[in-house]
């Protein structure tokens, strides 16, 4: 536990044993429960312990995003590594008002993954990969709903989208495909692809803006 002295009025913050680490000099650093922002700032100071803990905290998320986009374990690992290197280099310009550290990292990972795929393949995704991923992101098991109601509502809203709109949204939003690429993949006019992307985004925006009214999105 961490006790914040008299000011805390006896309030204690749980502190797991694994959150305490041995450092270079033999002292121990209770950094495992630092807020993400504080950990990022510490990372910018070049502290190797913090680097490991930072990577440990976010690696599953970063790898997941990279793998979803690239569908290539080796490429995903490269992308994930680049993501952490970029975060380390740019830690000082992270702006918490623009989103959480997690969002910032996943955005970096996503951009790098899309760029990596664009550089290596002419086809950004395989149709079967799209269907599988769409199934995963629209899955709403009870454990997820309990853990994060907002995400559960978003998953449900995505599941309620007309299939062609959901596909267009995933192609553009996850695989980084332009409307032209979506049109080619779906064998539809570019204007139709744009309309599907726009319509899907409008519906999802309504859910994000008013999560409790998500069930009423048409």
């Amino acid at each position: 536990m961490i006790f914040r002295g008299e000011r805390s009025g006896g309030r204690a913050i749980p502190w797991r044993p694994s959150d305490v680490y041995r450092g270079v000099s033999g002292s121990r650093f209770p950094v495992g429960r630092l807020p993400d922002e504080a950990l990022l700032s510490g990372l910018a100071t070049g502290d190797p312990e913090l680097a490991v803990i930072f990577v440990r905290r976010f690696q599953h998320r970063v790898i997941g995003v990279a793998m979803a986009v690239t569908r290539d374990p080796q490429l995903a690992e490269d992308v994930a590594q680049q993501t952490f290197e970029r975060a380390w280099r740019h830690a000082q310009i992270y702006d918490p008002r623009r989103g959480s550290v997690m969002t910032w990292l996943t955005t970096i990972a996503h951009n790098l993954a899309v760029d990596a795929v664009r550089a290596r393949r002419t086809e950004p995704m395989a149709p079967e990969d799209l269907e599988e991923l769409l199934g995963v992101v629209t899955e709403t098991p009870e454990r997820w709903a309990l853990a994060d109601e907002a995400s559960a509502q978003l998953r449900a809203a995505l599941a309620r989208l007309p299939r062609e709109q959901a596909r267009a949204l995933m192609m553009a939003g996850v695989y980084g495909m332009t409307a032209r690429q979506v049109a080619d993949a779906e064998r539809i006019p570019v204007g139709t692809a744009k309309t599907r992307i726009r319509a899907a985004m409008a519906k999802m925006r309504a859910v994000v803006a008013s999560p409790k009214r998500g069930d009423h999105v048409q």
Binding site: M67, L154, M204
Partner: peptide, 12 residues
Amino acid sequence: DRLIGLLPDGEP
């Protein structure tokens, strides 16, 4: 951003 947030975690 939220859409990307729905992607599943991966095992490093």
